[in-house]
Amino acid sequence: MDRFAHITDLPALLRTMPKAELHVHIEGTLEPELIFALAERNGITLKYDGVEALRAAYAFTDLQSFLDIYYAGASVLLKEEDFFDMAMAYFRRAADDHIVHAELFFDPQTHTARGVDIGVVIRGLSRALDTARQDFGISGALILCFLRHLSEEDAFATLEQALPYRQHFIGVGLDSSEQGNPPEKFARVFARCRELGLHLVAHAGEEGPASYVRDALDLLHVERIDHGVRSIDDADLMHRLATKRVPLTVCPLSNQKLQVYPDLRDHSLAKLLAAGLCVTINSDDPAYFGGYLNTNFLATFEALPELRANHAWQLAANSFEASFVDAATRTRWLAQLGEAFDRAA
């Protein structure tokens, strides 16, 4: 029985209900306008004639075609203020989307390879977290991601560079090209991060197979799976994820844009929810994939008509359950969620 069947304006509820975002790459929030503004500020010449020419280049056929332009866009980030401005632009949109908590991925190797000191990256982002808390009441945290197309030795070196700033990030993740870069490639560095008490997450089962999800759990000992939509191909894995309440940070518009599910009506999200998995909705790289968190919610619910208000509540509640926060904070957010649903009655 749907206890929220009386709610009639579901789109309005999706927009205004409190929610957490757990899978957003902060470099993937760089809008073309800000890319050009930072390029001008830093004296960088881009190969595109203007904002619209850059935006027109966002025609991706797979993950790699996206990553090529993603790394080019990040080239304008040089100073602490650049990282601060980028993150604050995201937080302003997050406030509009009624996000109460965001755990931001960042890719230090994308910047250190260009000669940008890792401290510049982390200090700029950390300052934005503090400002977002003061200005918008949004709590946040940083998760350092290793680029999986690079070596584990490079990941170890990045970890060592980051450790003087350990107080500024809560965990590590694994992103970039999944094909040909299985989880076991990073087993030793994840073991080291686990010893350091860091939270562990990893991209798996997006372009890669369901077996990558299993390996991320068994070999990397991650607490959350980022994407994980290919889990639907393995019934035993589905049962394990549901039983253990392992969160999946699903990104519907990203999956559509990168041709994982070319038609959003075919997306596995509703089936994953129905199987009892702790699924969340997130925006991934919203500047490139067509929308921030509320846009992902609205597009997904429009494409999958079996999703109703009770699913909206579950997805928001799952985002709180999957957040790396204390129980009291989680309870407070759930109360706010209940109030939002009461108001929508």
Rank of each mutant, 00 (worst) to 15 (best):
R41C: 04
G43M: 05
L46P: 05
Y48T: 09
Y48R: 11
G50S: 07
E52I: 09
A57D: 13
A59D: 13
A59W: 00
A59S: 11
F60K: 09
T61V: 15
L63Q: 13
F66L: 07
F66P: 02
I69S: 12
G73M: 08
G73A: 06
A74P: 02
L77Y: 01
K79A: 13
E81N: 04
D82I: 01
F84R: 08
F84I: 01
M88Q: 06
Y90R: 03
Y90C: 01
F91R: 01
R92N: 11
R92L: 10
A94Y: 00
A95I: 07
A95Y: 07
D96E: 15
H98N: 12
H98F: 10
I99N: 02
H101W: 08
F105H: 03
D107L: 15
P108Q: 07
Q109G: 02
T110E: 11
H111E: 06
T112S: 15
T112Q: 08
A113P: 08
R114D: 02
V116H: 06
I118W: 00
I118G: 01
G119E: 04
V121F: 06
L125I: 10
R127Q: 14
L129P: 00
D130N: 12
T131W: 12
G137N: 09
G137I: 08
G137C: 03
S139Q: 15
S139E: 13
S139H: 13
G140M: 10
A141K: 12
A141Y: 04
A141N: 10
L142M: 05
I143R: 00
I143P: 02
C145L: 02
F146K: 00
H149E: 11
H149T: 08
H149Q: 11
E152R: 13
E153S: 10
D154M: 11
A155R: 04
A155N: 11
F156P: 02
T158Q: 14
A162P: 06
L163R: 11
P164V: 09
P164R: 02
Y165N: 10
R166G: 07
R166Q: 09
F169P: 06
F169K: 00
